[in-house]
Write a protein that binds this DNA or RNA. Sequence first.
DNA 1: ATAATTCACGTACGTTTGTACGGCATAGGA
DNA 2: TCCTATGCCGTACAAACGTACGTGAATTAT
Lengths: 137, 137
Amino acid sequence: MVERPALSKSEMEVARLLWEIGPATVREIHEAITEYREADFATVQTFLRRIESKGYASSKLNGRTRVYSATARPKTVIRETVDDLVERLFGGNSMPLVRHLIEERGMNAADIEELRQLIDRLESDDSEATDGKGSKS
Amino acid sequence: MVERPALSKSEMEVARLLWEIGPATVREIHEAITEYREADFATVQTFLRRIESKGYASSKLNGRTRVYSATARPKTVIRETVDDLVERLFGGNSMPLVRHLIEERGMNAADIEELRQLIDRLESDDSEATDGKGSKS
DNA sequence: ATAATTCACGTACGTTTGTACGGCATAGGA
DNA sequence: TCCTATGCCGTACAAACGTACGTGAATTAT
C-alpha cells in the first residue's frame, strides 16, 4: 500500500487512456483524446508528468521521446476512487449507486444478461459460505 | 438546466448530510460529521457557504443562526457526478462500474434480491417496447 | 452582572488543478 | 545545409480546494 495522492479528474481521464493504449507517448495520448474533444498537447503532457510524479506511471526516454507506462492497475485506482465516492455521496452504501446506474444509464440486453449471471454467482457464493461475512456497513 | 460549478468532494459529503438531515444549521451538520470523523466547525461552515454560493443550497437566518436547505436534488447531483466519473474513468461505459460495485463491494441477500427485481423489470420494459428507444448514448 | 460560549462573517493561506507558454535541442524534409 | 516540425522541460498563473483563524455580537450559564 503505497499511499499516493489521488488522481484529479483530468489526470484520471489520461490514466484511463494510458491503460487502454498501453505504454504511450504524449502524442499518442493526445491524439486519442483529440478524437472526442479538444485538448492542448502541453496540457496532456503536464497531466502525464503529474500522473508519474504521483506514482501512477513511470516513463523512460526512447530516443528523445518519452514513453509513459502505467504502474498502477486500473482495478486499484477504480477501487480507491469509487470507495471514496461511495463514502462521500452515499455514506458508504453502494446500493444506491448500483441502482442509479442500472436505472438511469442505459443497459442493453447483453448487459442485463451479464448482470443476471453476476448475481446468480453472487447468490451461490453467498449460500456456499453457509452464512457469514456478508457485507459491512 | 442551471449550469453551476460542480461540488468538490468535501462539499459533496456535506451536501449529502444536508439531504439526509434536511434543513440544518452548521452545528447540526458538524455534529453529524463528527460522529464518524474529526472535523472543524469553521471548515464545515465554509463548505456550507460554498455549497450555497455554488447554487446547491439556500439559507436564511433564524434568529442569529443560519439554516441551510438543499435546493438541488440528490438525484441531479448524483447524475452529474456519476456521469462525469463514468466518462473519465470508464470512457462512458457504465457496465464496468456496475461490475466493480457488485463484485468488489459487499452485497447482502436483500441487495441481491433487489437487484434481481431491478433487472427483471428492466428486461420486461425492454421487450414491452417491442423494439425501439432502448438506451440513449 | 460577568464570564463563558456560540455563531456569523470576513479573511487568509498553502496546495492542487487546469491550462498553457517559451526556450532549447533534435530529427527530418526541401 | 537550413528551415520546420516535434518533443522535453522548466516555469507560470489564476481559480478552486482544504483548512482554519480572529473579531464582534448575541446568548447562556455562573
